[in-house]
């Protein structure tokens, strides 16, 4: 009889969850914890399904950035474009840059992609929504692990000095992924309602690629330097590349500032994502 009183009680009311922020935070932490297993399952499901139906398999996670890098290496070596001097060999600069960019672009696309893919599930089953994002995070990490093998190959091939700074690379990559996920997650609620976001995102990512110091060193002269100072990806990406190729971050402060802001922004977007999903699910057919 009294085991009834031990049962968890849930209340659903029309009031905004923002009115009881402490309760909301508690729920968020609880759901994040309880979504770990589901996130892992979803990750394993997606990865194994992906590779089971593919012949080239893992190649897809590093071939595109390498190809883009090769194009720029050829362009630069034939002097078709001239991006000026880089402090490390240009091929290393570009190949590491495009690979890192790929990580960012994947992270940016991941939230909306995985939420859209889970639409049917979302419409019918209540589960911790954090699992979708966490699962996407695992997928990105997994893909990065494959890419990192190639990165190490590049470093060895071009005989770049291996430094202790390499040990800090995972941290920088982590920030790069978080930044991408934060921006992607911010766009997700609107992207679930209007398809414009999904259609526009690839275009924006393409443009952003050229506005970021991926294939060229950060411009120093005004007004082009604005491109890097106003661009949140720039300090993180440049910092990560510095760590990979040189072992230290040249411009440490911008890197730290953007990292801090990213973590704050991610928490806010997480709340936004959480409270917006029920409203979005309402508009989806059951």
């Amino acid at each position: 009889m009294d085991h009834n009183s031990k049962l968890p009680v849930v209340m659903y009311t029309p009031d905004s969850q923002m009115r009881s922020p402490l309760h909301l935070l508690r729920l968020m932490c609880r759901d994040l914890a309880s979504s770990r297993e589901l996130a892992w399952r979803l990750f394993v499901r997606d990865i194994s399904a992906q590779y089971r139906q593919s012949i080239l398999g893992v190649f897809w996670s590093f071939i595109p950035p390498i190809l883009v890098g090769l194009v720029f290496i050829v362009l630069q070596s034939r002097k078709i474009v001239d991006f000026g001097e880089t402090d490390i060999p240009y091929p290393v600069f570009v190949l590491v840059g495009t690979t890192l960019w790929q990580v960012f672009a994947e992270s940016l696309n991941a939230p909306l992609q995985s939420v859209r893919k889970a639409k049917l599930m979302l419409a019918k089953i209540k589960f911790p929504y954090e699992a979708l994002i966490l699962g996407a995070f695992y997928t990105i990490l997994f893909n990065f692990l494959i890419k990192s093998i190639v990165l190490i190959g590049i470093l060895l091939f071009f005989k770049v000095k291996i430094t202790l700074g390499l040990l800090l690379v995972p941290m920088a990559i982590f920030m790069l992924i978080l930044l991408g996920i934060t921006i992607g997650l911010f766009l997700t609620p609107l992207g679930m309602l209007y398809t414009d976001i999904a259609s526009g995102l690839p275009v924006v990512v393409q443009l952003w690629f050229f506005l970021s110091p991926v294939v060229y060193p950060p411009p120093q002269s005004f007004p082009f330097s604005l491109m890097t100072t106003l661009n949140p990806v720039s300090p993180i990406l440049v910092g990560a590349r510095d760590l990979v190729t040189k072992g230290f971050i040249t411009n440490l402060y911008p890197f730290l500032i953007v990292s801090g802001l990213t973590i704050i922004a991610l928490s806010i977007t997480w709340i936004l994502y959480r409270i917006s999903l029920p409203i979005i699910i309402e508009r989806m057919s059951a």
Binding site: T13, A123, I125, P278, I279
Partner: peptide, 22 residues
């Protein structure tokens, strides 16, 4: 099942709920 919020009123659920919907 908590998928969507009610516009008025209140729902109180005790215990593990399972929906055979999907």
């Amino acid at each position: 099942s908590g998928l969507i919020k009610p516009d008025t009123g209140c729902i109180e659920v005790r215990g593990r709920m399972q929906a055979l919907i999907a």
